[in-house]
Design a protein around this nucleic acid. Structure first.
Lengths: 340, 340
DNA sequence: GTGAAAGCGCTAACAG
DNA sequence: CTGTTAGCGCTTTCAC
């Protein structure tokens, strides 16, 4: 039987069990327990390999907390998401909070389903990446008093916490870096503009181009690039056009990899400049090294999870959007000058 | 109030609520409900944005299931783990099962804590990577009737399901590949031998060397390499020794990256051959391309999660260790011949 | 078809 | 300090 060995313990020891030893290994620091009683309970706990049922407890507990968090990331197999997940796990572990992780896949329907699944499991809080500008479930969640912290993308909804990269500023810096090397005919390879961060990066690109006084006719913007293959195909088209760009700004790590393949296939990796948004592994080992605007996913995760626990501990300060700075890492590809 | 809007619904509709509409969006296919009653309940459900409490339900449900799985991977920010996690999530999603994910970090104490945390949350099953040859908690779990499937590493314990790469065979193939190019002085850079998969790869390396009749004096084996920095330092030492290897077999993806850095720093990337175990991103874009023995984490995850659900559905066939084949991908670095 | 009642394992409140 | 009791939201069973 599944819960076989558990019931007898309770039968005999009743509430004593949980007043004494329940949490992890240590004694529940419940005061006013006689050493003899504690020992008796502990013997039983060990003899039966008793593990308290946290779920049952949350049902009756005053705060109703399940010591559980729902995390929705772009995809659990994306390295950017992985780093965020890891730091959230680490901070949660210290507080004996477990985390449910799900992948968004930039699918609003999947997002709704994931949030509903979290809610049915009574998570204490939600750390979410959203595919929507104005998530529809927000009202329902707020009414329930469950804190939400958005990561990676800032929803348009007012009054929610969000932690994201300074996408606009980072894209501006990347573009400015290329302009400073003398480029004017610069192509932006962007993800779907539905995605808030993709749009912010596009805006940053336009900021820099405008500030430099470069006419929009020189800026080629390709959007709706969601995977490596699409990016590769798009850049291949541009390179084979009658008036190819002298520099490329790729708006996302998969796009960067696709762009690298396209440049390599045309033997142009030392001719056409490239700056990518978000770092890619082994970027320093390819030739030339890939210049990127690196994000700081560890910091995004850390700030988000700390905000979450602050909210859970009663912080009622006004919700804020926190922007984590990006860092331009020059490795070679972004320093290639335009042809003389 | 947290559960504020939920109680009134129950107060009025009692058990009707859950006989009619609870699961996800669809009507619980409970038969024998009058359309009028169902409509009444559905109105209330929608009006209150009611979400059933799955946890509370599992408490009373006959099978006691929480529709929850515990997943312990090497680290949620490791790409190999990420792919496994993703396919497990995908299959679980279809069955409306949520997954708790944790990172092992090759720390036995962390492993014990993670398993205990899963148990306290009454997960239905455990998919585990282990840092131990003989996990101590196994007896306790078996008594509870919770299925366990090990991934990535095979514990020595008998009678448990496990799904892992054919580590020994893959390492043999990698080493044989180097020997076939004429190498005899081959270095193995290995992880901690405590880790079962690292040991299996070492055994495969020795299999191939032995079969080729290469004296062990020509095989340099460095073990206990757990991160990129250690691997880089170890290979640097070897390259600067009086009798450096002509080829390197790196036993793990972080070691491969460390080895690439060491070779590059010595300008030997076109001189010393390298084959890595486990694929690395952008391996085809560095020069030379990195020859690897690729694992199939997607298949490992798929087989593991399918075995898990089979067990949960009552499959009582004898536990098995399933080995997923590896694939040698020749990209250049492994085809460099020894100096004439 | 529908409603009422018991009880899952726990915590909270209170009586001894 | 210790034991008892009620009840969290649900599923199960049984009476209507």
């Amino acid at each position: 039987m599944r819960t076989g060995p558990v019931r007898p313990l309770r039968r005999r020891l009743r509430s004593r069990t949980c007043r004494v030893g329940c949490g992890s290994q240590e004694v529940n620091d419940e005061p006013n327990v006689a050493p003899a009683t504690a020992a008796r309970v502990w013997d039983a706990v060990r003899a039966l390999d008793y593990h308290i049922d946290l779920q049952a407890g949350s049902l009756r507990r005053t705060d109703g907390r399940t010591r559980t968090l729902g995390l929705l990331v772009g995809s659990v197999d994306n390295p950017f998401s992985g780093v965020i997940h890891r730091v959230i796990e680490e901070v949660s572990l210290r507080r004996e909070v477990a985390v449910f992780a799900s992948s968004l896949d930039d699918d609003p329907e999947r997002e709704e389903r994931a949030v509903a699944a979290f809610l049915r499991r009574r998570v204490d809080g939600l750390i979410l990446t959203t595919a929507q500008r104005r998530p529809g479930y927000l009202g329902a969640i707020e009414g329930r008093g469950i804190p939400v912290v958005y990561i990676d993308r800032e929803p348009a909804a007012v009054g929610v916490d969000a932690v994201a990269s300074d996408n606009r500023g980072g894209a501006d810096a990347a573009t400015t870096h290329l302009i400073a090397r003398g480029h004017r005919r610069i192509a932006l390879l962007a993800d779907r503009l539905e995605i808030q961060s993709a749009q912010a990066r596009r805006d940053g690109f336009l900021d820099a181009m405008g500030r430099a006084g470069i006419p929009t006719s020189l800026a080629t913007i390709v959007t709706e690039l969601h995977d490596e293959a699409a990016a590769r195909a798009a850049l291949t088209d541009l390179l084979e056009s009658h008036d190819p760009p002298t520099a490329v700004f790729s708006g996302q790590n998969l796009i960067t990899v696709g762009a690298l393949h396209a440049l390599r296939a045309h033997g142009l990796q030392h001719t056409v400049a490239l700056v990518g948004f978000d770092d890619v592994p082994l970027a320093d080992l390819v030739d030339p090294g890939v210049t990127v605007v690196a994000q700081d996913p560890h910091e995004i995760g850390r700030v988000a999870v700390e905000r979450m626990f602050a909210r859970l501990e009663g912080d009622a300060s006004p919700p804020r959007h926190l922007l984590i700075p990006t860092t331009l890492i020059a490795r070679g590809s972004g320093e290639i000058p335009p042809p003389a």
